[in-house]
Amino acid sequence: MSVHPTRRRTTTAVLSALAVLGLAAAAPSALADDSARSTRVAAGPVSWSAALDEVDADDANVRWTDGALRLRGTTLRAASAEGTRGHGTQVLAAEKLDKQVNRVRAELSGTVPEGTVLVDVRGRAADGSWTEWREATGAEAVLPRTVRTVQARLTFQDPKGEARVSGLRLTASRGAEQPGRERAGAAAFSAQVFATREGLVGGTTANGHVIQPNDHFVALPSRRGLSPNGSGDFSVEVCGPVRCETAPVWDVGPWNTRDDYWNPSAERESFQDLAQGMPESQAAYETGYNGGKDGSGRTVLNPAGIDLADGTFYNIGLNDNGWVTVTYLWTGAAK
């Protein structure tokens, strides 16, 4: 799989508390390395404004025009979950900070009807691993661990094409650690789940990838583990009757869009009364959980917890939908 090169655009973090104290001049030069930066202790939150006008290859169905970010069109929807039309995404440049943070708040400006634009954030640790995405729309996002690099993603769910985002300001700080977040030495989590073939060649995934014949990727029912287009930041190992394959998570679905069932129950975004490793769709299909319906109110017709692109589906030895073992490679000690 090709991986987009790291984008070079950056914005400048503003350490407002330092400026008030008159200490900004003591900051090391921009050429200081990470080890030098790591010795700095900055008080107060860190704030910066995102560069929304830079739309590039890992963004989908959005454009910057007349001073605002908006959808290019309203017909696109994420393929696997058959979600609402008016889908689009922008993955912003990662912001390198001068302090450790684990909480991020997002403030959108412009004309943004409620629910039409969601902001997710994730953090990258010193070892290069990313945390899962956490939603920061309307509430402070709490990351699973402290980080020095933060990245934001905008997701449009705007079937009428009304949203006009003129600005995004992010504020990061460090708060109390949440118990149980660090799992030193823990292996990546694995579960046996029902897999379906996504197909849908020519459709577009939740990260903007146009599905090709014999494609290799998977869909999981949560944005928390969605890789940017072309990257393998979040990947799974999926094992079928013949072999295993490692494939990136490039779509959201099947059935649900807020069901990160690979996380411990207390950390799941939704359906926290289900056991870790139990997709909501499987519980709905097998036991009538949630009245036998998914999170959108549709009657669940199979217990699928993962969708496989055609190339992955056939490569692991499936000829029909069936049970597979999936390892969520970003989980465990470096989640």
Rank of each mutant, 00 (worst) to 15 (best):
A309S: 07
N256S: 11
V62G: 00
V238G: 01
A333M: 07
D120R: 15
Q282V: 06
D310K: 01
D320V: 13
Q100H: 12
T171C: 14
Q192C: 06
T111M: 11
G86P: 06
A187I: 02
R223N: 12
G185D: 05
A219M: 10
W330I: 04
T12R: 15
V218S: 01
A68T: 10
R197V: 02
L18C: 09
D120K: 10
Y261R: 03
L92S: 07
T205C: 14
A247P: 06
A68P: 12
V252N: 03
F271A: 03
N102T: 03
I316T: 01
T312D: 07
G199E: 12
G295W: 05
Q272G: 08
T75V: 10
T11N: 10
R174W: 08
S38I: 01
T331P: 00
N319G: 14
A152F: 05
D260L: 15
L21G: 05
I306W: 10
L226A: 00
V46H: 12
T39W: 08
A19Q: 15
N315I: 01
A136L: 07
Q157K: 15
E107V: 08
F234S: 00
A79S: 07
K160Q: 14
T299F: 08
G86R: 04
G208K: 03
L226R: 07
T196P: 05
S231E: 06
N214R: 11
S16F: 06
E140V: 14
P303A: 09
T84R: 15
A304R: 02
K293S: 09
L52W: 09
K160I: 07
M1S: 13
Q178W: 13
S227V: 00
A219D: 06
R72K: 09
I306Y: 12
V55H: 12
T89Y: 13
A36C: 13
L21P: 00
G288L: 02
E140M: 15
S281V: 01
L97F: 07
G167F: 09
R183Y: 08
S222R: 08
R197C: 03
P45N: 14
N207V: 01
G115L: 05
T6R: 15
A266C: 00
V201W: 06
T111C: 08
I306P: 04
K335G: 00
R37L: 12
R9H: 09
E267V: 08
A163D: 06
G123F: 03
M278A: 02
R197T: 04
R224V: 10
L92H: 12
L31A: 09
M278N: 01
G208Y: 03
V238R: 01
T11R: 13
